[in-house]
């Protein structure tokens, strides 16, 4: 068994020991995981972002346009002092402004308009007849989220139908999430039983 497998196996057992109760082995493994993760992210970000996209092109290839993002980045450090804190707002304003400018039209189009149009189109099936199942689901769910009137009478009944469909959706999502977590555990068990303990091949 190589040293990497041995360390991974021992740390997996240390993490799983939390299922019994909190203990020093778990604390150690947890702290190590956080420390290694942060260190790794820092190195990857520095090499792949600051070095590859900023310092190397700016200082080696003299791409002077990069002085602008460098300055914006440096302004963020102004937050460390009360007198210069306002400078960071310039960088934040650029970041939020450009981010919102890019995100809002895209999200409106892709998440809202396209999804709405697909929902409406799907209400008529291939033979041109209305799809009653779709109509019931949509009316029910939308009624449930209509809060301008008290949900009683006909509106209340339709909203109740919507609640059932919402529950089906939440149930499905929860089921998939359980499946996902089980898969993660199975993956670790496979590692423990095959690579670490050599019980299965």
């Amino acid at each position: 068994m190589d040293i990497g497998t041995l360390i991974a196996g021992v740390l997996t057992l240390a993490i799983l020991s939390f299922l019994y109760r909190d203990n020093p082995f778990y604390k150690f493994a947890e702290s190590l995981l956080i420390g290694v993760s942060i260190g790794y992210i820092l190195v990857i970000t520095f090499n792949n972002t600051l070095m590859a996209l900023l310092f190397e092109p700016l200082f080696k290839e003299s791409d002077l346009w990069l002085i602008i993002p460098l300055l914006l980045g440096l302004l963020m450090w102004g937050r460390f002092h009360k007198k210069t804190a306002f400078l960071s707002r310039i960088s934040i304003a650029v970041m939020i402004g450009s981010g919102a400018g890019v995100a809002i039209p895209a999200m409106l189009k892709e998440r809202t308009l396209k999804q709405m149009s697909n929902t409406v189109v799907s209400l008529v099936n291939a033979s041109g007849m209305p799809d009653f199942t779709g109509i019931i689901v949509i009316l029910g769910v939308i009624s449930y989220f209509y809060f301008s009137r008290e949900q009683k009478g006909a509106l209340g009944k339709i909203a109740k139908v919507g609640t059932y469909f919402l529950m089906i959706f939440f149930g499905t999502t929860f089921g998939y999430t359980v499946m996902s977590r089980m898969s993660t555990f199975i993956g670790r068990m496979e590692f423990l039983l095959s690579d670490f303990l050599k019980l299965i091949h």
């Binding site: 959706f169 499905t172 999502t173 998939y176 999430t177 499946m179 996902s180 977590r181 898969s183």
Partner: peptide, 9 residues
């Protein structure tokens, strides 16, 4: 997409 089960829905 090749996604985790939790993201399917």
């Amino acid at each position: 997409g090749a996604v985790t089960a939790a993201m399917v829905t």
